[in-house]
Write a protein that binds this DNA or RNA. Structure first.
Lengths: 119, 119
DNA sequence: TAGTGCTACCTCGCGATGCGAAGTAGCATC
DNA sequence: GATGCTACTTCGCATCGCGAGGTAGCACTA
């Protein structure tokens, strides 16, 4: 099942996406869901995003600001903390390395040309 | 924990890596472990790879060829089947889309310039 | 014969996550 | 008062990565 694979592939990646969206400025759960869902590959529901936000907040990567919107329940705005930004930078770095590694996997560094001697 | 994140991020990705390695030619579990472990980001053990190989085989993405190596236990060579190649192509396609989506997430397509009219 | 070490394979069980399903609640419209 | 949108929250299942542990063939050594 390719769907299953996609679900698995999202693990961890969605956390990164949430941080990436918040790097552009504060936002709240419902809006993040809408923003990510603009991309078919990141189509999500609240049951996916809210636990992520709660976790990131608990880990101190996000801070919260409750804002009563005169149009429905109070909005809970999230924004990156200092260590949240560091975390995102680390993630970017790691993803870049993965990208590089995959490129190498596709075209191996010619482990054997048939004959060679030194290191 | 960044380690936890990395573990989560690997989900699905390692399956892709295995297929990518096999796209270069047949190989066996122990060798695939060594090959992937050349990259720190993909450092794995047998307990990670063998279940993946078993799953991919069961899904008919891989076929098997047992070859008694006169140097230890019989090697179980895996290689891509026709649908395995299709699967890999789909994965490449999906990963490319994800890449694109992430780029857009980082720099949003200017959702509002202050004024615009049409649909 | 017994011990160590490398190759090579397989399985169990835990922890973390994504996500469908379901629930709560404020405001608006019909 | 019923429907519908906004907005947040929790439960429970399925999947996967991976440490720990096990089996087995061959080689070398004492």
């Amino acid at each position: 099942m390719i769907d299953t694979w996609i679900t698995q592939l999202r693990k961890g990646l969605l956390e990164y996406c949430v941080l990436t969206v918040l790097a552009r400025g504060e936002s709240y759960g419902y809006e993040i869901v809408a923003e990510l869902s603009r991309f078919e590959e990141f189509s999500v529901t609240e049951s996916t995003i809210y636990p992520i936000l709660a976790r990131l907040r608990q880990e101190k990567y996000l801070k919260v600001r409750d804002v009563p919107s005169g149009l429905g329940p109070t909005r809970r705005y999230f924004s990156l903390t200092a260590i949240g930004k560091v975390r995102l930078a680390e993630m970017n770095n790691h993803l870049h390395k993965i990208d590089t590694a995959i490129s190498h996997l596709k075209s191996p560094p010619r482990k054997d040309t048939g004959h060679e001697s030194d290191t």
